[in-house]
Amino acid sequence: MRHLPLLAFSTLLFLIQPAAAQRPTDLWYFGRQAGLSFANGAPTPLLNGAMTTYEGCAVATTRRGELLFYTDGQTVWNRLHQPMPGGRHLMGSGSSTQSALIVPDPGSGNIFYVFTVAAQGAPDGLRYSVVDMTRANSLGDVPRANLLLLSPVAEKLAAVRHANGRDVWVLAHRWRSNAFVAYLVTAEGVQAAQPILSNVGSMNAGPGGNAIGALKFSPDGRQVGTALWRDNNKFEVYDFDRATGKVSNPRGFGPYQEAYGVEFSPDGSKLYGTCNGNSAGAISRAGASETQLIQIDLKTKKAETVGRSSNHKIGALQRGPDGKIYVAREDNSFLGVIENPNAAGPACGYVDDGLNLGGRRSKLGLPGFITEP
């Protein structure tokens, strides 16, 4: 009994300590050796990244948010910012919109799958590689790389938790087709032989550049947003069934020339998209910037421009752990920030020079993460 006061005191100390636990989406590495940490709430620049990538990238952490590794879909860097053994020749592309996506094995805390997509519908297609964190003195190794799932595919890649709360759906889009393809990742591994196909919506076809454009899940996992670059020039929204992996009910919005990035507001009521007009020139004949941030109200179907950038190109959109949405600006030392993304119209509060990267520069990509409804 004399130990109870000490136990109670220790418990009290634990409860009143400042929350220090990080989240799996708190660390970002992207662009030209740029990085951010959301561990303390407001994002702060990270200057230790080794990766330079033009577009897609992904970061893996422990459940507590501690860095494990990151990748551009071609090289895998460990937590010491060194290439992993076997991690140098993945068949993604630094010039693919969503080149890489990392999915932890649902049955193991040590195995991760790195999914990659090639650029512009190239034959390398959709593949995955295995990262084993028990190897190389717990710094990780890539014992199996570039296992082919499907070729060719567009530059779209996203993941969401299955309705069972354990497994993960990885969603891509077949090239020269209107088919979404969903692969289930379970404790038994990637179910490569049993993809779920949904032939719905626009064709992803034409010149290779038409494969450009992002794919994102809504926070509740019930909707999917896509950007279709040339020649479709539009954004689309679909319904998604987290139990079956099926995509349905397409709705299109446009035209928006060179549609590229997409992201949902935290409450799922808005879809945001970036477009660059004719990127051969950032200024239109009327003298106005053509780099636009579009907001689509998914209830009213109203679409409007809620921001413009002084930058020549803007790219990926990524919702942060703080509820704000961040906008990649090519070769810029600032990210754009949507301060209040649940708000309708200009009240969403887009700030072009919104977040200083501490001297590092963004390109067109920001890291993608699994959507956890």
Rank of each mutant, 00 (worst) to 15 (best):
L4F: 12
L6T: 15
L6N: 10
S10W: 15
T11H: 09
T11V: 15
I16V: 11
F30T: 02
L36F: 14
S37R: 10
G41T: 11
A42H: 12
T44N: 04
L47N: 10
G49T: 09
G56R: 04
L67T: 00
T71L: 08
T71N: 01
H81P: 08
P83S: 01
P85V: 15
R88V: 08
R88A: 10
S93W: 00
G94D: 14
Q98H: 06
Q98S: 08
Q98D: 08
S99G: 03
S99T: 05
I102W: 12
P106V: 03
Y113Q: 09
Y113H: 07
A122P: 07
V130S: 00
V131G: 00
D132N: 14
M133G: 05
M133K: 10
T134D: 05
R135W: 12
A136N: 11
P143G: 10
R144G: 09
L149Q: 07
L150E: 14
K156F: 05
A163C: 08
R166W: 02
R166L: 04
F180Q: 10
V181H: 09
V185G: 08
G189E: 08
P195E: 06
A205C: 14
P207D: 07
G208F: 07
K216F: 03
P219Q: 05
R222P: 02
Q223K: 13
G225N: 07
T226K: 01
W229D: 13
R230C: 06
N233L: 10
K234A: 15
F235Q: 09
E236I: 02
E236Q: 13
E236T: 10
D239S: 14
K246S: 14
S248Q: 11
P255M: 03
Q257L: 07
Y260E: 12
G261L: 00
G261A: 00
G261S: 00
F264C: 03
P266V: 06
D267A: 12
K270S: 00
N276G: 06
S279N: 13
G281W: 08
A286S: 12
A286P: 08
Q292I: 02
K301C: 01
A303C: 01
R308F: 01
S309R: 01
S310Y: 02
H312N: 08
A316D: 05
R319E: 07
R319A: 14
G320R: 14
A328T: 05
D331Y: 14
F334R: 03
F334V: 02
A343T: 06
A347C: 11
C348Y: 00
D353E: 13
G354M: 10
L355R: 04
N356P: 10
L357T: 04
L357M: 13
R360S: 15
R360K: 10
L364S: 13
G365T: 07
